[in-house]
């Protein structure tokens, strides 16, 4: 165990303990470890993908259109002769940016709203609940369609729409987690220790809500990608020829019934893998932020 006191922020020893704890979590659960490795792969693709792919993802060449996977084009080529593999890898960045940004925005806004309404209760809580009820009254993908259609077809608006439809999840979760801890012994004890309400909320109650939120974050990351890809699949947001998984599946959809499966399969598979990775990471992330998992 470390010998830090509460005054010291992250001492080297604490950082070391954190790393050891992460290692422990990974060793305990191989699925978590695998999901972290896959996550690293996607992050790497997003960071350096555009510089290492073999072909220009936008370069068309009708001479080699619709070729099945081969050594030169492992994922085949599309109807315009573009290399599907390069497009799939390059698309990672855009898809990850959309989902991570959308989830980050909804996490921050949702947490603040939920924490205030859960801690304070009263009319703030009632008003927020009504607003959330109204947002949740829409089937969420449909609301995202409506927002993007109304605000205009752009990547920014996709991010905003995805963030808006995710806010209620965080707000509700944080509200519930905060309100069950509002009267908890350690909360009262923190007040008696001379903490102001804001400190109690931010330093005592909120950190304890993190473990269940991490599960939500990872599910939402996956869901945000699905949502963004779904929107571009029906022609909202990302416009061709930008490589993006949803739009690539949409382009490939027309060729499925004539047997050119690779155009839709590979981007779809990558999308699926990304979502799968995020979903698997949830439990691992929770275990990492939960000190009770430390032994």
């Amino acid at each position: 165990m470390t010998d830090q006191t509460s005054t010291a922020p992250a001492t080297p020893a604490a950082r070391h303990a954190m790393a050891a704890h992460m290692l422990y979590v990974c060793r305990e659960n191989p699925v978590t470890a695998a999901s972290f490795v896959m996550f690293a792969f996607f992050i790497l693709s997003a960071l350096i993908g555009p510089y290492v792919v073999p072909y220009d993802p936008l370069a068309t060449n009708s001479a080699i259109a619709l070729q099945a996977p081969s050594l030169a084009h492992p994922f085949g080529t599309d109807n315009l002769g573009r290399d599907v593999f390069s497009r799939v890898i390059v698309a990672t960045r855009l898809d990850l940016i959309i989902s991570v940004l959308a989830v980050a925005i909804s996490f921050v806004i949702g947490s603040i709203l939920g924490a205030i309404s859960g801690y304070r209760g009263g009319w703030i809580d009632s008003v927020l609940n009504r607003v959330l009820d109204t947002i949740m009254a829409f089937p969420l993908f449909v609301l995202a369609m409506g927002i993007v259609a109304a605000m205009g077809n752009s990547v920014t608006n996709i991010i905003i729409a995805t963030a808006i439809i995710n806010i209620p999840f965080y707000a509700r979760l944080v509200r519930a987690e905060v309100s069950i801890r509002r009267e908890a012994g350690f909360t009262l004890a923190a007040k008696l220790a001379g903490n102001s309400d804001l400190r109690v909320l931010a330093l005592h109650i909120f950190p304890n809500s993190l473990p269940p939120m991490m599960v939500q974050v990872s599910l939402n990351l996956g869901w945000a990608i699905l949502n963004a890809a779904g929107l571009s699949f029906i022609g909202l947001g990302v416009k061709p020829p930008t490589p993006e998984w949803g739009i690539m599946v949409a382009e490939g959809a027309n060729y499925i019934i004539s047997g050119e499966w690779w155009m839709a399969l590979f981007p779809g598979l990558w999308l699926l893998l990304a979502v799968f990775t995020f979903n698997l990471m949830g439990d691992g992330l929770r275990d990492i932020v939960d000190p009770r998992r430390r032994t």
Partner: peptide, 21 residues
Amino acid sequence: TDSLNPRHTARQSIAEPLLRM
């Protein structure tokens, strides 16, 4: 059990009022 912050060590819990007051 309920009155101790699960994320704080015993040292942190005891030090908390001293840090504040």
